[in-house]
Simulated assay, not measured.
Amino acid sequence: MDYSLKQRWRLVLGRYAESLDTSLSSEQNQQDQVLEQLYQQGLKERGFQISGGLEASQPSVVQWLDNAEKLFPKSVNDTLQHQALERFNLKQLLEEPRVLQNISPSMGLLKQLMSISAHTNPKLQQQVQQIITTVVEDLLKQLRPLFNNKLNGKLNRQAHSPQKRLANLDWQTSIRKNLKHFDGKRVLFERIYFHARQQPQLPWHVVLCIDQSGSMSSSMVYSAVIAGILKQLPCIKLSLVVFDTQVVDLSEQADDPVKVLLSTQLGGGTLIAKAWQYCEQLIETPSRTIIATVSDFCEGGPEQAMFQQAQHLIDSGVTMLGMTALSPESMPFYDTNATAKLSRMKMQIASLTPDHFASWLASTMGLQK
């Protein structure tokens, strides 16, 4: 028997396959542990208590969910997590207020809570809102400086500004103007100079169009945070649209990522064509409009309708950007056939982490430094 086939049978049969006389790689050993916990001994027997004493067991539950997502392809992971949630009542466990009061907020936990719509449960509203707030504040600290730096306009090297921002520092002028204060050892800076920035005369209209179908929980969190940042920038007019089989305009709430996430309901199908038809209604100046869609591009309706709507928007002068869905480990998952055809139609599509999206958006708007 082929050795790799032996390894696969070893993973399938678990502890009953010792007679195959085969060893597993480090990653396969981790996969084996996840599968054993679920199918061989059961999560409860491995210390995952389903009722009573929840405080001690809950971190391991979230870790198991995260490990399953990290170690297996999406199709396999969907099956594993579905069976875990149903067979071992993990959904009930994560919906326990006592668990959420004692758990450490993290992106992995928030993703799981969003995927089971825990944020819509009135009994959990306070706990889930606190977790969302903590994770969002963390992401804002990481991402806001990057977006502000990239999207606040090009440096105007012919003019100076009283606004003191390190990214705008004109160190050559600062040194030259203060050389008269050189004491033989060091320059004493009486005044430090900062470049001004050129702002576009007409703001760009950025429409963030976010897929909120069931597989998009991580992307939804990042998108809400990015929308909150973009909403504060003077060079951008922001619209925030989320969709599954229905389309919801959250533009009025876009400056508050926590409120946006509390308003979303992950699940359902995906109708991208319908979402783009709505976005078209928001456009005033096509040549200054960017529709940035975050999705796995698995269209639930007729694909031809999606392609026709994309072509119509592109022909009108709208810049179409597409960001593929990303797992928490930044692994992309998307419909490769659909994205390939959209790319041939001149829609720009990329698999990007949020920090790289800032550079991509700045380059598209002509603000790249």
Rank of each mutant, 00 (worst) to 15 (best):
P105K: 15
S60C: 04
S19P: 14
K111S: 12
V99H: 04
R87Q: 13
K70P: 01
Q63I: 09
Q63K: 14
L93N: 06
V34N: 00
R87V: 14
E18M: 02
T79R: 11
N67F: 02
M114V: 06
V61P: 05
Q58H: 15
D21T: 05
K91F: 00
Q49M: 11
N29S: 10
N67I: 00
Y16C: 04
L43P: 05
L93S: 05
Q101T: 11
Q83V: 09
Q33M: 10
L71W: 05
K111D: 10
V99Q: 04
S23K: 06
L65R: 00
Q37L: 12
L110P: 00
M107F: 11
T22A: 03
E55W: 09
P59L: 04
T79P: 02
G47E: 03
E55F: 12
Q92F: 11
E55H: 14
L24Q: 02
S19C: 10
N102K: 12
K44S: 14
N67M: 11
L43H: 02
Q30R: 09
M114R: 03
S26Y: 03
L43Q: 03
R15H: 13
S26W: 01
D66Y: 08
Q30N: 09
L90C: 05
S51F: 15
Q49D: 11
G47T: 08
N89Y: 14
D32M: 09
Q40M: 09
A84Q: 02
T22L: 02
V76K: 07
M107R: 13
G53S: 15
N77E: 12
S75G: 04
P59N: 04
F72R: 03
N29T: 01
K44W: 10
E45W: 04
I50F: 06
P97W: 13
R46K: 13
L109A: 12
K111G: 09
I50Y: 05
Q37R: 05
K70N: 08
L109K: 02
K74D: 00
L13E: 07
V76F: 04
T22E: 01
Q101A: 15
L90S: 00
L65M: 13
K70V: 01
G14N: 06
I50C: 07
L85G: 04
P97I: 11
E96A: 14
F48C: 06
E86D: 09
L85Q: 02
L113S: 04
Y39C: 00
G53F: 12
E18D: 11
P59Q: 07
H82S: 12
Y16H: 10
N67T: 02
G52N: 15
P73L: 12
S25N: 11
E86Y: 11
V76W: 04
G108Q: 14
S60R: 11
K91Y: 03
N77D: 07
L80K: 01
Q41S: 14
I103P: 01
S60F: 13
G47A: 03
S106N: 10
Q58S: 13
L65N: 01
Q101N: 14
G53V: 14
I103S: 01
G14W: 00
L38D: 01
N77S: 13
G52E: 10
F88L: 03
P105A: 12
Q63S: 15
Q63F: 10
L90V: 08
A17M: 00
P59R: 04
L100S: 03
L85E: 05
R98Y: 14
N102S: 14
S51I: 15
A84D: 05
E45K: 11
S106D: 07
L13H: 11
D66C: 07
F88C: 07
D78V: 06
L90P: 02
E96R: 15
